[in-house]
Design a protein around this nucleic acid. Structure first.
Lengths: 196, 196
DNA sequence: CTAGGGTGTTACCGGTCTGTAACTTCCAGA
DNA sequence: TCTGGAAGTTACAGACCGGTAACACCCTAG
């Protein structure tokens, strides 16, 4: 249970953490603000004093997710300082671990599936954050000395993204079981190809 | 506009087609039964005479989608009778075309993102239909003479699935532009490896 | 012509949703 | 101790949701 969130911290933080957790588990349209505030040990008025609408809360949750993902990249650098290839392998292991964490896919992808209005504020930040993540993976591949860094980064991205939705549709026993094998094979293959 | 659906056909068919279209465009929780029946040129009572609940309508829509996808496979066989490798390349082309068709991802994946209750009837048919599609692609790869048919089929599946969600999050100008290149490269690579 | 089933129409039920108003309580800092 | 702002409480507005009841209609098969 995520009740640890309800312990004494500021209401805004509790709301944000609880909303992230509930949006992740039940989807955005599957959770009402009443349920969020109750689970966060507060009430609706307090939510609307800190967030001007549910949509803004959604956006803040997505940004918080991205911040947590950013911390992951820093952890790679801390664990393998300067060794970009090791960091790339660490990314693969981390990605595989996320596949088995729970049956839910990427929060941003799920949000994009739910929020279909083309000008929804969340869609802008999703695009922005996904592009930032892609840029980060491209940089990592390039710094690891891989020739076609963009192509490898994009391939790994699509494989991971696909594996996450595969887990969500057919479970952890489907094609996603081969993710590590595919990813490692690709890295080997791209490293074998001449750089340039 | 999908108004052609509203032309004279039986109410049940119009409802099914309209619901498929609207679920695809706006998501499942984003469309109410009233909106569906109105767009289908009928009314709510008629819907509930043909479908016992919205959930059952959802399931029928997913099955109809799968049926349409099944017709696609038959088209491949009709176009390249017996030439399984050509059919595999046709699948790649078809997949790429779907990426650029509209900004929405796979209906089953989107439904799985929205319907989070573990025992929702739609989740069962999604798993069933996705597994059937996977089996079909594996068979095609095997019949095309590829050694590690399961691994290639799974890799292509994940790439395609990932490309669809990528289109939904960052648009058609993102990593999905490389899909054909990745897929064709994989096929070449797997054909190069010894069969067995 | 007639009977009956499929369809359309209207109204409604109970519930849930986002968002707001008005008021009370609490607590920290001066 | 006093005060001001943050937080809690209750009630409500207005809209929408899935689903149902009761009744009128129309068109086709016999």
């Amino acid at each position: 249970m995520a009740d640890g969130i309800v312990e004494r911290s500021r209401p805004r933080d509790r709301i944000l953490e609880t909303a992230r957790d509930m949006f992740h588990k039940h989807g955005i349209k599957g959770v009402g603000v009443d349920a969020i505030t109750e689970a966060a040990g507060t009430n609706k008025m307090t939510l609307y004093r800190h967030f001007e609408s549910k949509d803004e809360l959604i956006v803040e949750c997505l940004r918080a997710n991205a911040a947590k993902a950013g911390a992951m990249w820093e952890a790679f650098e801390a664990e393998f300082p300067g060794d970009k290839l090791a960091q790339l392998h660490a990314w693969v292991r981390k990605a595989a671990a996320m596949l088995n964490a729970d049956g839910r896919g990427c929060d941003m992808a799920n949000a994009a599936a739910e929020l279909t209005e083309p000008d929804h504020p969340a869609r802008l930040v999703i695009k922005e954050l996904k592009e930032a993540q892609r840029a980060r993976l491209v940089t990592l591949c390039r710094d690891a000395g891989i020739g076609q860094a963009e192509l490898l980064a994009d391939t790994l991205s699509l494989l991971f993204e696909g594996a996450r939705v595969s887990v969500q549709t057919v479970g952890t026993e489907g094609p996603s079981t081969q993710f590590v094998r595919m990813a490692e094979g690709l890295i080997v293959s791209f490293r074998g190809a001449a750089a340039g």
